[in-house]
């Protein structure tokens, strides 16, 4: 950013804006710590990945604050330091939590637990491999190695650190293989997960694993954040919604008090027709501007067909409105 011809004022703005990212991120990190502090953490595979994510993401955030400063940024512009920074942010911020979430929710999806032993292998290989790959890149960047190059002269002396990075990449690959093997193996041979494999308090743990297509036979009521801890799995359900007309309950936004019922749309071919018409319009517009006014016709027809209330929808709505 700073190496482009942005005026001084723009540079100050981007410095301030980039530094300010640290504020919400910092709040976030303290929220995570407070959450763990207030609970009873169980050091199983999902939490391992979450802790790994804290560690890596915080390091990525620190280099982010460094990069917000103009002189430092100019110095390491387009070097491996930047590559190291954003991998710490992205892999730390996205891939570690993603893997943790998979360990947590795959049992809900398949009905079988992932192996904890393989999970530990998966985590430690990934954590070590990641740091081995990307930590030396900070140093490489400070020593001037540009990014987006596939080779460099031997005399630059970047060889040993790059070798380390390549080794780390191999370890990451191995870790991903362990994960895939874990998923495949557990699919058939994993421990049966049960409805609530982690003794969690949230609602998704009240249905079977895997859940039925309709999720819940009856809409459950909740009286707090952790309904399964507060009321067990037999919390009372909502009645009075019709089964023959697609009707859902709408609550108030802030306090979730039941407010009204609303009818959901029926199945309709018109959204598909509209989508095809819009696609035709845009593809046509590559070849001639006339595709825009001409193509607008079918799009309008599609939208009108979509908006136009069907007789069935009309009758059903009248039935719903007569009831109270």
């Amino acid at each position: 950013m700073f190496a482009t011809d942005v005026p001084q004022l723009g540079q100050s703005f981007f410095t301030a804006a980039s530094m300010m990212i640290a504020i919400p991120s910092g709040v976030q990190i303290f929220c995570w710590i407070a959450t763990l502090w207030g609970g009873k953490p169980r050091l199983q595979v999902p939490l391992l990945f979450v802790l790994g994510f804290f560690f890596i993401f915080v390091l990525g955030g620190l280099t982010g604050v460094m990069l917000a400063a103009v002189p430092f940024n100019l110095q390491v512009h387009d070097t491996f330091f930047v590559v190291a920074h954003f991998h710490y942010v992205l892999i730390g911020g996205a891939v570690f939590p993603l893997l943790g979430a998979l360990y947590y929710w795959v049992p809900k999806m398949t009905g079988r637990m992932l192996s904890a032993r393989l999970g530990h292998w998966n985590f430690w290989l990934f954590f070590i491999g990641f740091n081995l790959t990307f930590f030396p890149m900070h140093q490489l960047g400070l020593r001037g190695m540009p990014r987006r190059v596939y080779t460099y002269p031997l005399q630059m002396g970047w060889g040993p650190l790059n070798l380390l990075a390549s080794l780390g990449a191999g370890i990451i690959a191995l870790s991903v293989l362990v994960f895939l093997a874990n998923v495949l193996w557990s699919w058939r041979h994993g421990l049966i997960a049960g409805d609530n494999p982690w003794q969690a308090g949230t609602l998704e743990c009240a249905t079977s694993s895997p859940p039925a297509g309709y999720n819940f036979l009856y809409l459950p009521t909740v009286s707090g954040r952790e309904p399964l801890w507060e009321e067990g799995v037999n919390q009372p359900v909502v009645i009075g919604l019709r089964h023959d007309i697609p009707e859902v309950l709408v609550t108030r936004v802030l306090d979730a008090v039941p407010d009204h019922r609303t009818k959901m749309p029926d199945a309709s071919i018109w959204p598909f027709i509209t989508a095809v018409a819009i696609t035709g319009l845009f593809i046509g517009s590559i070849f001639t501007p006339w595709a825009v006014p001409i193509g607008a016709g079918p799009v309008a027809v599609g939208l009108l067909g979509w908006l136009w209330p069907t007789q069935r929808d009309h009758q059903q709505q009248l039935i719903l409105e007569e009831r109270p």
Partner: peptide, 23 residues
């Protein structure tokens, strides 16, 4: 879940105008 009724919503209105509604 045993389907013990806890909340009957059949008397609620079937639409809402303004910020209460989905639209």
């Amino acid at each position: 879940m045993n389907g013990r009724p806890g909340l009957d919503v059949s008397q609620l209105p079937a639409y809402a105008i303004g910020p209460r509604g989905l639209l």
